[in-house]
């Protein structure tokens, strides 16, 4: 088993929290992890990405090769498209539909949706809205992780245990809220995956 995930977003949106949960869960599952991230100048309001690789064998490269990502998990819709050359032919995009516009020339949402729909059954998530329902907009990353959970190759219970572990320092209620957010995302994802 080997899963390659590109995590995408804008500096400050917290994609590394998502990565931390997956990393922890993968190690708990006895899997090998490599996760390359961006620090430094490029992080402030700029496009950021993390290459996350999970395997039951040794992983050599910290970077994902083009055309081999099983999943692009993006917390911003335009950012999901930036890394399309990495997507495997049968790879999936799971993205938030909440746009973050801090530059000139941002395309229309219609253009972005057109491009997203050219890919293999994208999962589109109104993350902010679902996060608010779960208790706080700050849980939107866990909504996104929940929506991506079916494609990560790790049991949802293991991911939930890792959320619990990583958020427990902030209090039991915060941890519970994030798990609620995770389940909301997961439910939406299952709904979208069901053929209509």
């Amino acid at each position: 088993m080997q899963i390659n995930i590109i995590l995408a977003g804008v500096g400050g949106q917290g994609i590394l929290t998502i990565a931390a949960v997956i990393d922890h869960a993968a190690l708990q599952s006895g899997l090998t992890v490599r996760q390359a991230e961006v620090h430094g100048m490029s992080q402030r309001g700029g496009a950021v990405q993390s290459h996350l690789r999970i395997s039951d064998r040794e992983i050599y490269s910290d970077l994902i090769a083009e055309g081999t990502a099983n999943l692009i998990l993006s917390v911003e819709p335009l950012e999901a498209l930036r890394y399309l050359p990495f997507l495997a032919p049968d790879g999936r995009i799971v993205t938030s539909t909440d746009s973050f516009i801090n530059m000139e020339g941002y395309p229309t949402m219609e253009q972005i949706f057109d491009e997203l729909h050219r890919t293999n059954h994208p999962v589109l998530v109104n993350a902010a809205e679902l996060a608010r329902e779960a208790g706080s907009i700050r849980t939107s990353n866990m909504v996104m992780l929940g929506a991506a959970a079916p494609f990560i190759g790790i049991a949802a219970e293991t991911l939930e245990a890792s959320i619990e572990k990583l958020f427990q320092a902030k209090g039991a209620d915060i941890a519970a809220m994030n798990i609620r957010a995770f389940r909301t995302g997961q439910a939406l994802s299952q709904l979208q995956a069901t053929p209509t």
């Binding site: 804008v10 309001g45 700029g46 496009a47 083009e66 055309g67 335009l78 950012e79 498209l81 930036r82 399309l84 050359p85 990495f86 997507l87 801090n102 530059m103 000139e104 020339g105 941002y106 395309p107 253009q111 972005i112 491009e115 890919t119």
Partner: peptide, 11 residues
């Protein structure tokens, strides 16, 4: 590979 769409702008 799938190309980056033409609508992409730098951030």
């Amino acid at each position: 590979v799938i190309p980056v769409p033409a609508i992409m702008v730098n951030r």
